[in-house]
Simulated scan of single mutants.
Amino acid sequence: MDFRESITVNNRKTKLVVCSYIVIMIVIGLLADISIRPLSEVGLLHDMQLYITFAETPYITLGIFSLTLIGIFIISKFGHKLMLSGSTYRELVPDSTLSYEDRRVVNMVEEMAISANLGYTPKVFIMETEQMNAFAAGWSKNNALVAVTSGLLSKLTRSEVQAVIAHEVGHILHGDSKLTLYVGILANVILTITNVFTRVFFFSRSQNKSANKARMILLVLNFVLPIVTQVLYLYLSRTREYMADAASVRLTGDNQAMISALQKISGDYDVHENYKKDEQSYTEKYRAAAYIFSKGDSIFSTHPSIENRLKKLRGE
């Protein structure tokens, strides 16, 4: 299997998902503009065309994009910090005195960062829990981090830990944390705006047919979009997991280590019911979407099923 080709294919899928969100956002904005300020009696599509070509300024559409940019800016500054909140962890600082085990973890992160040509080494954290898992956050020297659990370090071999770390460095390399945060903002803005305008227009009617059609479509979308945006977001998340698995193989040159690590992590999850209960807190749910492993078997899962991931890694 050509893992570089796998990354290329999944990148195309990612672009398709992001473009879908942008198109949905534009449509919602234009429908809201027409609902409040219809431009003609010709029809809904004609009014959309007038707004798209800026024959008239689509104020609401531009306002939605402005709110989105503000949200993206805030998330870019503080979003990665949520990943460690609500957990017990310690940072491994390379310049400090580290134990042999801690130094080994730092060395592996440094090695994988060099292999990936990141140009910097992400910060390294150990989360104190028996759960076998790991995650990455950030996308630059200022905010990138790799966190692994103490349970994972104690139960995997060195080559398996290295494969897991390579997977997480792959997430940073591909900008997955940035992408999922941005898409999350897009989804929330879309749903919030649709809900607000549906409530505003629910009991009102206009003399203009285009405005009434736009309001009716917004009402329908208010029920449909929560499902559509969630499915798109989760599809994106699963796609990025496949990419990170492929990156792990590319960086380590070994698919067997990643296969073995996923099998052990999956088996460990199945015998510890308390892991599932831990995911009830908000911060843990937020973090669970970034973990290297989470149960996945449907379009509403953040991760692909372990069976599908292993098939991809084996080239089946």
Rank of each mutant, 00 (worst) to 15 (best):
F197Y: 11
Y120S: 07
R103M: 11
A55H: 10
T88C: 07
E316Q: 07
L82M: 02
H171A: 03
S150P: 10
F293P: 05
L179D: 10
E316D: 08
D270Y: 09
N117A: 10
T53P: 03
K81I: 04
L218S: 06
I227E: 04
L31K: 03
S20F: 13
E273K: 12
V169A: 00
I70R: 04
P226N: 04
T157M: 11
A247T: 11
L152W: 04
V189K: 08
V124N: 04
I28N: 02
S154Y: 11
T198Y: 09
A187E: 12
H80W: 12
I227F: 14
L234E: 08
K123M: 01
D297V: 08
S266W: 13
L218Q: 08
S99M: 05
Q280F: 10
F223G: 07
D254P: 06
K213E: 11
V93H: 01
R12D: 15
K295G: 14
F3N: 09
F202E: 12
Y291S: 12
R238V: 11
A147Y: 01
V271L: 13
F125P: 01
I292Q: 10
I165F: 06
E284G: 07
Y233D: 05
Y233H: 08
V220C: 02
L45I: 07
A163V: 05
V164H: 02
I52D: 03
M83V: 12
E284S: 14
Y282R: 11
L251C: 05
T194E: 02
R4E: 11
N133I: 00
F73G: 08
V146W: 01
K285G: 13
I259L: 14
E316C: 03
